[in-house]
Amino acid sequence: MAAGGDHGSPDSYRSPLASRYASPEMCFVFSDRYKFRTWRQLWLWLAEAEQTLGLPITDEQIQEMKSNLENIDFKMAAEEEKRLRHDVMAHVHTFGHCCPKAAGIIHLGATSCYVGDNTDLIILRNALDLLLPKLARVISRLADFAKERASLPTLGFTHFQPAQLTTVGKRCCLWIQDLCMDLQNLKRVRDDLRFRGVKGTTGTQASFLQLFEGDDHKVEQLDKMVTEKAGFKRAFIITGQTYTRKVDIEVLSVLASLGASVHKICTDIRLLANLKEMEEPFEKQQIGSSAMPYKRNPMRSERCCSLARHLMTLVMDPLQTASVQWFERTLDDSANRRICLAEAFLTADTILNTLQNISEGLVVYPKVIERRIRQELPFMATENIIMAMVKAGGSRQDCHEKIRVLSQQAASVVKQEGGDNDLIERIQVDAYFSPIHSQLDHLLDPSSFTGRASQQVQRFLEEEVYPLLKPYESVMKVKAELCL
């Protein structure tokens, strides 16, 4: 049975990233139509530049190519590739079939990587351009969430054990800070992308030097003109047959890092959902379990974690691919890159769409948070109580021993009897502590235990987050809708 299948058929496997999760716009960027249309555009740009620099290419040939950029006979191309065992030459023939007058000058002087690699770089750039505003929107939604809850005390956790208090907004800023680093890295790697350009079979530009009869300047002009037509500021000066596969490492490393950030955020949300302090959106008709109707599973956060793990592992592909590119190139890269580049971007696209949807509907339960604080705060307040007693004339050592005994009794009630923490009640009825009984409410005010959390939130948002989001103001209103 021949390899390949009808990918629109229910009898043929289709990647869930495309069929179930990723956005239509990201799927289109990695589609065959987008790819092969870009090949034709690159052939047109090459012909236009070659004509401008004096090669015998007519206006009629150029116009014929322009008129057929979208006229792609995919069936013919597939048949040609089956016959020739070469995808680029299959599309040269297919393009030439609908451009008979231009057929002889299509791909003039070029090698397969002229269309293959340059198209990949265009796709990487455009895919990054799709991700950047999506990530900015996630940051914006979380920034709104953090600002609104900047002063809401909550129990902090280290080692997932109760620690000092923080605020809900401050905790959210930990998430935002990681995503801001990801946004900066995505922008950097996007701006650092260079075009492969017009380089020939081993990167020496020998074929173009021959076409222009040894004119170095025209060869350099050709490279520059096509690079500018493709919208790049610069091209690699040095290439082998391909652009260095280190570029793929750079791009997928940034995406993998984004995956790590999203995994951490969504894990926190899942843990908070278990504590009943916070939940992701839950639709009115949504079913959490087929057997347990009360369940409210954090399905979206779980999906993000599941896909983020996949995204983090994909960076190993370009690392290994770059390491086995012998001399000017081997074909070890080809099949692998067809999979890992598309999957990385479709996965990143999915987790950003999902995280935006989550961040637009996060639900906080202040009463649950308050109750958990009441359970733990008495123990945390013991040092403040000791200091207040010393100020009232008591002995630190005597007070410490009193607190120690009462704390152990209260802990026994919590752990052995399943009761509430009654340390404060014990202190309130103990005559030894009568000098500070009137101060206990103040000493137990949760806001006095959150330090500068709310001020940190305000400063972080104003100095770091809002300036970073400013270039994306025009796209901030787009909502994230999930079908599944």
Rank of each mutant, 00 (worst) to 15 (best):
259 G>Y: 01
168 V>M: 08
183 L>D: 02
267 T>E: 03
153 P>R: 01
87 D>Y: 00
269 I>R: 06
163 A>L: 01
65 M>E: 01
113 C>R: 02
210 Q>C: 06
465 V>R: 01
388 A>G: 08
22 A>R: 09
293 P>W: 02
387 M>S: 15
406 L>T: 07
210 Q>P: 09
308 A>C: 14
79 E>I: 12
248 D>G: 03
438 S>H: 10
131 L>F: 13
431 A>D: 13
185 N>Q: 10
68 N>A: 08
75 K>S: 11
470 K>F: 14
169 G>C: 00
348 A>H: 03
384 N>D: 06
402 K>P: 00
250 E>V: 06
234 R>V: 09
435 P>N: 09
262 V>N: 02
392 A>W: 02
470 K>C: 13
54 G>Q: 08
136 A>L: 12
76 M>C: 14
310 H>I: 11
108 L>Q: 01
22 A>V: 11
76 M>H: 13
230 A>Y: 01
463 E>G: 11
217 H>Y: 14
66 K>A: 10
10 P>Q: 15
246 K>D: 07
449 F>T: 02
436 I>S: 06
423 L>M: 13
2 A>K: 15
93 H>R: 14
114 Y>H: 01
70 E>H: 14
187 K>R: 12
339 I>V: 13
128 L>K: 06
110 A>T: 09
418 G>H: 01
164 Q>M: 13
450 T>C: 10
185 N>R: 10
209 L>C: 11
419 G>V: 12
459 R>C: 11
105 I>E: 05
316 M>A: 08
454 S>D: 13
153 P>F: 02
405 V>E: 11
460 F>I: 05
392 A>S: 09
419 G>P: 02
157 F>T: 02
449 F>V: 04
86 H>W: 01
183 L>Q: 08
257 S>Q: 10
56 P>A: 13
105 I>R: 10
5 G>V: 12
77 A>F: 14
455 Q>I: 05
28 F>H: 10
265 I>N: 05
27 C>Q: 07
205 Q>P: 00
215 D>Q: 14
476 M>E: 15
385 I>M: 10
6 D>P: 06
254 V>W: 09
408 Q>N: 14
33 R>N: 08
312 M>R: 05
475 V>N: 15
59 D>Y: 10
417 E>K: 10
299 M>A: 13
206 A>E: 01
51 Q>C: 06
256 A>P: 03
290 S>A: 05
386 I>C: 15
53 L>R: 01
207 S>K: 01
358 I>A: 14
359 S>L: 07
344 A>V: 02
183 L>K: 07
116 G>C: 12
229 K>T: 06
464 E>A: 05
75 K>R: 12
80 E>P: 02
478 V>I: 15
5 G>Q: 06
41 Q>G: 05
327 F>N: 10
244 T>P: 14
448 S>Q: 14
156 G>Q: 02
360 E>Q: 15
412 S>V: 15
267 T>W: 07
102 A>L: 05
319 L>S: 01
53 L>K: 02
421 N>E: 03
400 H>F: 05
433 F>M: 07
8 G>Y: 15
384 N>V: 08
114 Y>S: 02
393 G>V: 07
447 S>Y: 14
354 T>G: 15
149 R>S: 09
43 W>L: 06
124 L>Y: 09
361 G>L: 08
337 R>K: 10
171 R>T: 00
32 D>Y: 09
188 R>G: 06
416 Q>R: 09
189 V>A: 11
137 R>Q: 14
423 L>R: 07
275 L>E: 06
162 P>T: 04
21 Y>Q: 02
78 A>C: 10
86 H>F: 02
255 L>V: 12
329 R>T: 03
166 T>P: 05
391 K>S: 12
261 S>I: 04
444 L>Y: 05
231 G>P: 04
323 S>M: 10
210 Q>I: 09
135 L>W: 06
276 K>R: 08
300 R>C: 14
95 F>T: 06
404 R>W: 09
97 H>R: 13
110 A>Q: 00
339 I>K: 07
446 P>H: 15
161 Q>C: 03
179 L>I: 12
348 A>V: 14
137 R>F: 08
176 I>H: 03
84 L>H: 06
467 P>Q: 08
468 L>D: 02
151 S>N: 13
239 T>V: 08
217 H>S: 11
119 T>S: 14
78 A>V: 11
369 I>N: 08
167 T>F: 04
405 V>G: 13
379 F>C: 03
308 A>N: 03
383 E>Q: 05
462 E>A: 14
370 E>R: 10
327 F>T: 11
244 T>N: 07
50 E>Y: 02
89 M>E: 01
114 Y>P: 01
51 Q>D: 04
227 T>V: 10
82 K>I: 15
48 E>Y: 02
385 I>F: 12
415 K>E: 08
97 H>W: 11
313 T>I: 13
316 M>V: 10
293 P>I: 07
390 V>R: 03
202 T>R: 02
159 H>V: 01
315 V>K: 05
115 V>T: 12
312 M>E: 06
200 G>P: 00
374 R>F: 06
267 T>S: 14
61 Q>D: 10
372 R>W: 03
287 I>Y: 00
241 Q>C: 03
123 I>K: 05
467 P>C: 09
396 R>N: 06
39 W>Y: 15
378 P>F: 03
16 P>G: 15
372 R>Q: 04
204 T>N: 10
286 Q>L: 02
23 S>Q: 10
352 L>P: 04
156 G>A: 12
266 C>G: 12
144 D>R: 15
293 P>V: 04
223 D>N: 08
360 E>D: 13
61 Q>N: 12
171 R>M: 04
335 A>G: 13
30 F>T: 07
104 G>A: 13
106 I>L: 06
89 M>Q: 02
10 P>F: 14
311 L>R: 03
131 L>V: 08
79 E>K: 12
297 N>G: 05
325 Q>I: 10
75 K>D: 13
171 R>W: 00
100 P>G: 06
94 T>N: 09
289 S>W: 00
340 C>V: 15
34 Y>R: 06
397 Q>N: 10
394 G>W: 07
